[in-house]
Design a protein around this nucleic acid. Structure first.
Lengths: 213, 213
DNA sequence: TGTACATCAGTGAACGCGCGTTCACTGATGTAC
DNA sequence: TGTACATCAGTGAACGCGCGTTCACTGATGTAC
């Protein structure tokens, strides 16, 4: 463990927190190679620069560490949702703005988004459940946002849920596509254009479908 | 290794093929617990009833085995697409029929669909790439099917691609939801109803969006 | 048909290695007086 | 302020275990003559 570069000595609590952070960062990076279920406590300890047994001072197991990483990753994701929600939800450019913000956040917090995409399907059970629960909360948040739009006044709660679910799954798929894509800017541009067209299709479909109920 | 229960002795080739099958089946089942990247050659050998070194008579590595499992899983998935494609693509009930067939196949070949959903995001690189390639082929197949519908006569290839991509991602998400859901029939029914509504939204949106281009 | 040889799926011992977890410990930080 | 004691993040040795891979092998099946 390194000492801080300057000045005032750390308190015991500060030092502990710093090690905890280093463990979370190391696990996020190392699990990116494969998956949490293939990550060993000893790899993490080695990367952090502590002895394997010191790991237990911070987490009971890799699975528990994984749950902590879910919490942390969804802080990033919620920050994105907040950005999207901010500003006028005028129908005309809401799609373009939302996708732009999505792309920005996926780049800025790439490892968090990769973590969610990966462990959502293949993580340890507790991690999978935690992620599904968080995604469900995001869907509900989106549903309440949609409910505020004048166009959705006559919609039932069920309709809002169905549309939210569809939009969220499209956004998850788009985020995955961006992260998987080759780093050439034209590849990303194509994905963004596709996502925009798809989101427009979905919204127009929802409005037309709704109006004939 | 067990001998066959009856009659004529196996040829060397038949026996080898039988062991290969047993390895594929064991790997599919065992990887279901976590993921291919956490599956060991020795676990597979033990489950099959051969000595670990005999594994190398059939595959170079777990990763190579994984690629073979991708091929096999997509045979199941293509069988589903063939079922969906068969029969009249009359617009009125194509959605309900397609989702019904999807659900049937997900139940019948549950382990293949689980494998694809899991390893798509978290498998070894060669496996991930193989899966993405296969999904892309499915999208193109769907695009050519859609192109045959009279309603899509004025559509560009790009439009067809965008719509196919959206439909496929919705189907993947629905399959995942079915497999993740608790085995209560009402939970599954809710997922099916949601998927139907979403697919209708998408189709109506596509038609309306297209008509104003 | 019988014989001699080739093939090769599966065996079994052995290797060095990284794994999670236990345990008793150290020594700096924190606290009570 | 100084002293005596408590706390606890991190240490280091040790354990038994499963790992992938090597190697020389066995013995049934297949083939050439």
């Amino acid at each position: 463990m390194h000492r801080p570069t300057a000045g005032r000595p750390e308190s015991r609590g500060e030092r502990k927190e710093r090690t905890r952070r280093a463990i979370l960062d190391a696990a996020l990076e190392l699990s990116g190679e494969t998956s949490l279920v293939a990550l060993s406590l000893r790899q993490v300890a080695k990367e952090v620069g502590i002895v394997p047994t010191a790991f237990y001072r911070h987490f009971d197991s890799i699975e528990a560490l994984g749950v902590a990483l879910v919490d942390e990753s969804f802080v990033s994701l919620r920050a994105m949702l907040r950005d999207i929600r901010r500003g006028d939800p005028a129908f005309s450019d809401v799609v373009d703005r939302s996708i732009t913000i999505l792309v920005e956040h996926v780049h800025r917090q790439r490892s968090h988004f990769l973590f969610i995409a990966r462990e959502r399907a293949a993580g340890p059970p507790a991690v999978r459940d935690a992620i599904h629960h968080e995604i469900e909360l995001c869907e509900r948040e989106l549903a309440t946002d949609l409910a505020r739009l004048p166009a959705t006044d006559p919609w039932s709660a069920e309709d809002l849920r169905i549309l939210s679910n569809l939009i969220v799954m499209a956004m998850v798929a788009t985020a995955e596509a961006i992260m998987t894509a080759p780093p050439r800017p034209d590849a990303e541009k194509a994905i963004i254009e596709t996502a925009r067209a798809q989101l427009r299709m979905v919204l127009i479909g929802a409005l037309n479908w709704q109006s004939r109920t």
